[in-house]
Design a protein around this nucleic acid. Sequence first.
DNA 1: GCAACCAGTTCCCAAGGGGGT
DNA 2: CACCCCCTTGGGAACTGGTTG
Lengths: 330, 330
Amino acid sequence: METKNRRVTATDVAKSLGISRATVGFVLNNTRGQTISEATRERVIAEAARLGYRPHSAAQALARGRSRIILLVLPDWPIEHSMSRHIEEASSFLDEAGYSLVTYTLHEGGTARPLWEVLDPDVVMGLLPFSARDIASMRASGITNIIPDPEADTAAWQTGPSIVAGPELQVEHLAGLGHSRIGFAAPADLRLTLITEARLAVVRKKLANLGLGEVDHRTINVHDTSARTAVQEWSNSGTTGVVAYNDEIAAVVVGAALREGVSVPGELAVIGHDDNPWAELFVPSLSSIRMDIEGLGRQMALTALNAADGRAVPAEEPAMIAMLVRREST
Amino acid sequence: METKNRRVTATDVAKSLGISRATVGFVLNNTRGQTISEATRERVIAEAARLGYRPHSAAQALARGRSRIILLVLPDWPIEHSMSRHIEEASSFLDEAGYSLVTYTLHEGGTARPLWEVLDPDVVMGLLPFSARDIASMRASGITNIIPDPEADTAAWQTGPSIVAGPELQVEHLAGLGHSRIGFAAPADLRLTLITEARLAVVRKKLANLGLGEVDHRTINVHDTSARTAVQEWSNSGTTGVVAYNDEIAAVVVGAALREGVSVPGELAVIGHDDNPWAELFVPSLSSIRMDIEGLGRQMALTALNAADGRAVPAEEPAMIAMLVRREST
DNA sequence: GCAACCAGTTCCCAAGGGGGT
DNA sequence: CACCCCCTTGGGAACTGGTTG
């Protein structure tokens, strides 16, 4: 069809209309402080549509000094699935504000140039605090907006609602079922240490509040016999309810119990965390915690916009943070 | 510390050295056809490092007309986990060639501007053929390199090794165990129809090759009783081995069997596909297929580079496509 | 609406030194 | 010895497509 496939620029639109390319820009950006006649405005819009004009985002980024990209960094263990709905929501919301959300799974030993260096995002946002190395790298790339704020105390993050709500519910649920000796099953993965410690602290505190004894805490490795040992020891010590770090650990514990001849939930009740889609497929199906912040996506988006734009964040705290999903394992 | 935080530009490096900014560019890009003395080259590199110079990618993209970004589109069902290692590998590889890989999970009813419009990638690459709507959208954004090629026949893709190898192994494995009546458990999810059909066709063909009877094909819905019905019917019809579309469906079938009092693998053997990390956690643990193309990441990267750069793709077909992981469910 | 500007890339040419005739 | 040519090295300036005073 077309012999030359050059992309349509604002200049093309302007020339075709016999006006200046600045005017085209004014109209298409709704530039405030510039008054353009309604007639011209309409002609520009119509002509841009007719020619199939798309702004060249690199050029825009260069001229404005801001890329209107927000980078969401995800950890490289599969928390992703439970996030995906929220990400989609955040994405739509940011889009309406003229920003694009790019997600980035940061791999451990990754050798590639990090994406924040390439995309020059206005904001880099993570689900948990960044390592000092990453922060240094961002700073060196000229990133000034980092969430969570590296200056803020990690401890504050560790006691935030997104960490605390789940474990509290887990303990409440088991206690409510009459379990008085409660165990905690932690993952061996070192990358999870920060969250594991925080959750364990919540469990301890909650147990103390309820006047129950000390938690019986074991580290579970998926690929060895540590789960069977833990089940035996819990069994011996009279522990009847186990709070698992997540559904994977819960599944390992339940599996070990079944193989040891310990009935679930009769002799040992186990509750996971995250409500992975496969948790309900087990026999017995796994009770779990669904993190379900009504509007977490919007909340994330607003936080990002605030950092990028300085627009105010309605402090509207989400209605519900975590929800118990009771199934057969408790 | 710093009062002005302006980013370091090539001009800064040039001025600091008393040379032109063109020269800085020549050195830093290894521009061919320009010869720069070794002494100057070293001074430029040292000074750039000292000042912490980072090229402004938007400016580069604008000037060159190419963004050096490759967009990998992932489907919004969690195939992601099994891909993650390959993605990391592709990412490193592309990085060495000066390209950045951005992954993008395309959500069904997403309302946001698609990322290919924002990032202006040199190549958009998907794991399966794009919808006509997406292709039109890419074309409108000026994307010329699309993989898989929209012109190519979908049928060709459906009979490619990445589709065929898994089901063949599944059937071979069950047949090798002596199962002669074999069932197929398909997911109800409509988004998976394309792959499901393709895999089922492979199973049919393989059974015919082995001189076995027709496949007994059932659609399994995770949230109703279809799995129990299927198990009963397989039981009645003498089907003793089931090829599941993936591990999730396999888990549902195994669960239904256990609840029906049908022993696994004694009365019904089930094999999944994808070898999700949680497949081994089940009791009985799930046999599965691990897609493990040695160098799939590199292969993906090379294909992309070929499209972006025109550099030749070594046709080096990967050594191994799919691998049987036998566990307790078969 | 004109013009400067954003931060690079790239084509083309100038200056200077060395070697050959 | 003077002259010419060429090659090496590096600079000038136009250009990318928008934004904004």
